[in-house]
C-alpha cells in the first residue's frame, strides 16, 4: 500500500505544530529541547515524503544532514544546561531571568 503524499505532509504539519506549541508553552529547558527535536523530525518526515514524491535522493541527503546537525546542537545545548544547573540549581526558564531591563 502506498501512503499518499498528503498524509505525510499533514502528519508532519501536526508534529511541527506540537513542537512549536511545546517550545512556546513549556517552562522546563529539557522539555523545550525535546519539542525542538520534534520540530526537526517533522521536517525530516516532510523531506522524506517529498523525496519519494520526486523520486530523488536530495531530500534524504538533507534528512541525514539535519539529523547530524540536530545531534550536535543538542549536545551543545545539554552541556549549556548542565553548566547553568551547576550555578543556579534550576532548569526552569522562568527562574532564569538575571538580565531584565
Amino acid at each position: 500500500m502506498v501512503v499518499p503524499l498528503e498524509h505525510v505532509i499533514a502528519l508532519s504539519m501536526i508534529l511541527f505544530s506540537i513542537g512549536v506549541l511545546g517550545v512556546l508553552f513549556r517552562r522546563n529547558a529539557i522539555t523545550i529541547f525535546m519539542s525542538i527535536e520534534l520540530m526537526l523530525n517533522a521536517v525530516n518526515l516532510a523531506l522524506v515524503g517529498f523525496s519519494r514524491y520526486y523520486n530523488s535522493v536530495d531530500g534524504q541527503v538533507f534528512v541525514f544532514l539535519v539529523m547530524t546537525l540536530a545531534a550536535a546542537e543538542v549536545a551543545v545545548g545539554l552541556a549549556i544546561i548542565i553548566a547553568l544547573y551547576r550555578n543556579r540549581q534550576t532548569v526552569n526558564i522562568d527562574e532564569i531571568n538575571l538580565m531584565k531591563n
Binding site: 517550545v23 523545550i32 521536517v43 539535519v66 532564569i96
Partner: peptide, 22 residues
C-alpha cells in the same frame, strides 16, 4: 550571566533555525 545568555541563545537559535528549516 554567561550561562543564561547561552541558554537563551540556544533556545532561540534552535527554534528559529527549526522554523526556517520547515
Amino acid at each position: 550571566h554567561s550561562n543564561e545568555a547561552s541558554l537563551k541563545y540556544v533556545i532561540y537559535g534552535a527554534f528559529s533555525s527549526g522554523i526556517m528549516l520547515y
